[in-house]
Amino acid sequence: MSTKKTRSWYLERVSTGAMWLFLILAAALVVVPLVFMFTASAMPARDILRLPYPWIPDGFYWPNYWNGLKGPEDDFIFFRNALNSLIVAGSVAFFTVLLSSVTGYGLAKFKFKGRNLVFMLIMATMMIPFEAIMIPLYMVAMRMGLQDTYAGLILPFLANAFGVFLMRQYLITFPDEILDAARIDGAGELRIFGSIVLPSSGPAVATLAILAFRSQWDSLLWPLLVVQSDEMKTIPLYITRYMAETHSDEGIMMAVAVLASLPMIILFLTLSKYFVSKEGLTSATKG
């Protein structure tokens, strides 16, 4: 009995050690490219591709960041492009939340003929991947004169089936008594929605807003199709400009990468609970 116990005790120790080793190794491998990005952004290009790679920068090499902001044509268009990204991602997040919660509320709390049909139709759009309709969508956008405009970048993403689903599920448990009490007090339906329903859907709204913001901040394919001028480019397109050039400076490229990631890093560090909430995870594939 006692020998068996010690044997399993050793086995336990060895397996725990192996797990720690595996985790540490995996975490290190995953983090190394990030460390590379940050260190390389502070080095002159000739150091970045030196053999072996010098992991500690020799002081902070500011010209990378200065040139990254100045851009390939010295016109500081980075700021305009960053503003575009903020405008697009911000408005998509705002209007997606608004549309989804209004629709989710309507579907959750009002009985009307055809409600189930409407819900099924909206859910069916989840089965239409964006990649499959991007070319026809592009033709629609061209016909509506939306090329190279904010509207063209924003409008196609406002109707979000997952958002409607999330808000409907969230609001379906909202107590009817509160709504009826407000109605008896003479509040209009819009006021009930705006001052009672919406303020109490905080967590769902936050999850949805962050999801929408992230997927737009990351978006490459649609802006590639719709945007033509350098002024209307978003951050991902600003970066591709650097990649298309054959002799761009590696240090500047990494500095631009850091600059482009800063908003997301800050958002992640402050709101990480909404990043890794289960709803957020299951749905990010929809973006």
Binding site: L99, V102, T103, F112, K113, L155, A159
Partner: peptide, 20 residues
């Protein structure tokens, strides 16, 4: 109430129709 249900649902339906 049925009317308000439609009013709440309609804006989304317009967008889904146009872009999906």
């Amino acid at each position: 109430k049925a009317m308000w249900g439609w009013i709440f649902v309609l804006p989304s339906l317009v967008f889904f129709s146009a872009f999906s």
